[in-house]
C-alpha cells in the first residue's frame, strides 16, 4: 500500500505550486510574452491584496465584489505603472532607440524604483506588520479528499489559475489583440511599420497582466489570512524562477514549472530540513539553465 503521507505531500506541493502559478501567469504575460523587463509585479500583487482588505474592512461586501475591486485596482495600477516607469523610455521613436537594448533594459531600474516607492508608501500608510483578514472571508476551510486534506482555497486557486491560463492562451493565439502583443514583443519596429498601435498594445498587456497580479494578491491574502507590504517579494521570486525555467515566453511552461517548483519543495521537505527546501527548487533552476538554456518549453529567440 502506498504511504498516504506521500500523497498528502504531493497534494501540498500541488497546492503550493498552484499559488506560484497564479502569480507567474500575469508576470509571464508582461515580462516574458511582451518581453518587457518589469520588476514591479510583486507590488501590484500586494496592492491587490491591500485593495481587497480595505474594501472588506470598509463595507464588508460579498467576496465577488472584493475580487472585482482588486481587479479594478490592478488595472489602474498596471496602467499607472506603464505610464510612470515604461512610457517615458519609449518617447524616442527613431530606429536607433527602438533597437537599443539599453533603452529596453533601463526599465529594470525604473520598475524597481516604482516597486520600492510603492512598498515603502504602503508601509507608511498601513504599517509593516501583518494585518489579519476577517475570518469570514478566508478560503481555508479544510476539505478531505480520500486520505488527503486540502482547503477550499486550493480548489478556488486551481479554478482561477486554469481560467487565466486558458483565457490567455485563447487571447494570444486566436485574437487580433494577441497577435498584436506577439508582434510587438517579437519586433517592436516591425510591428509599428505594419500599422500596429504599439502603445495601445503595451498598455493593454500591462492592464491585463496587472489585473491578474492583483487577483493573485487578494486570493493569496484570503488564502493565508495575512496581508502586509512585503508580501509580494517571495512570490515574485518564485514566479520569476518558474518563468525562466519555463522558457520565458511560454505561459503553460511557466505554470508547469511553478507546479514542479511546488512539488519539489514539499517533497524535498521529506528528505532534507525544511530550511533547505528552497535550495532544491533553485537547484532545479540552475540545472535547467545549464542543460536547457532556453528553458524547458521556450523557443529560441533573442531576449532583452
Amino acid at each position: 500500500m502506498f504511504d498516504p503521507y506521500y500523497l498528502q505531500q504531493l497534494a501540498i506541493g500541488l497546492s503550493l505550486g498552484m499559488t506560484y502559478a497564479l502569480m507567474a501567469i500575469g508576470f509571464t504575460l508582461i515580462f516574458g510574452v511582451l518581453n518587457v523587463v518589469n520588476f514591479a509585479h510583486g507590488e501590484i500583487y500586494t496592492l491587490g491584496a491591500f485593495a481587497g482588505l480595505v474594501l472588506i474592512s470598509a463595507t464588508a461586501p460579498p467576496i465577488v465584489a472584493v475580487i472585482l475591486g482588486a481587479l479594478a485596482i490592478g488595472a489602474l495600477a498596471g496602467f499607472s505603472l506603464e505610464r510612470i516607469a515604461f512610457k517615458p523610455f519609449r518617447r524616442f521613436t527613431d530606429e536607433a532607440s527602438l533597437k537599443s537594448r539599453a533603452m529596453r533594459e533601463s526599465t529594470l531600474l525604473s520598475s524597481l524604483a516604482v516597486s520600492i516607492v510603492v512598498r515603502e508608501a504602503l508601509e507608511i500608510v498601513f504599517g509593516s506588520q501583518m494585518r489579519s483578514v476577517p475570518f469570514d472571508y478566508l478560503i481555508n476551510t479544510p476539505v478531505r479528499v480520500g486520505p488527503v486534506i486540502l482547503v477550499t482555497g486550493d480548489f478556488i486557486i486551481f479554478g482561477v489559475a486554469a481560467a487565466m491560463l486558458i483565457g490567455l492562451q485563447y487571447l494570444l493565439t486566436r485574437t487580433r489583440v494577441g497577435l498584436a502583443i506577439r508582434a510587438v514583443s517579437n519586433n517592436p519596429l516591425g510591428a509599428k511599420y505594419v500599422g500596429i498601435d504599439t502603445d495601445r498594445t503595451i498598455i493593454t498587456t500591462f492592464v491585463v497582466g496587472s489585473m491578474m497580479g492583483a487577483a493573485a494578491g487578494i486570493l493569496m491574502g484570503l488564502y493565508y489570512g495575512a496581508v502586509f507590504p512585503a508580501m509580494g517579494f517571495t512570490p515574485g521570486i518564485k514566479a520569476f524562477v518558474a518563468m525562466v525555467m519555463g522558457g520565458l515566453s511560454s505561459i503553460p511552461g511557466a505554470v508547469i514549472c511553478a507546479l514542479i517548483l511546488g512539488i519539489s519543495e514539499s517533497m524535498a521537505t521529506t528528505f532534507v530540513s525544511s530550511g533547505w527546501s528552497d535550495m532544491v527548487a533553485y537547484g532545479f533552476l540552475i540545472l535547467t539553465l545549464i542543460f536547457f538554456p532556453n528553458g524547458l518549453f521556450g523557443a529560441r529567440r533573442e531576449r532583452v
Binding site: 505531500q9 499559488t19 521529506t270
Partner: peptide, 20 residues
C-alpha cells in the same frame, strides 16, 4: 527537530513530516 526559514508561508509539508 528541524529549522524552517523565517517568513515561510506554507508549513503544511513540515507539519506532515513532523506528525510522522
Amino acid at each position: 527537530s528541524e529549522f524552517f526559514n523565517r517568513g515561510l508561508k506554507d508549513y503544511r509539508s513540515l507539519i506532515s513530516k513532523l506528525e510522522r
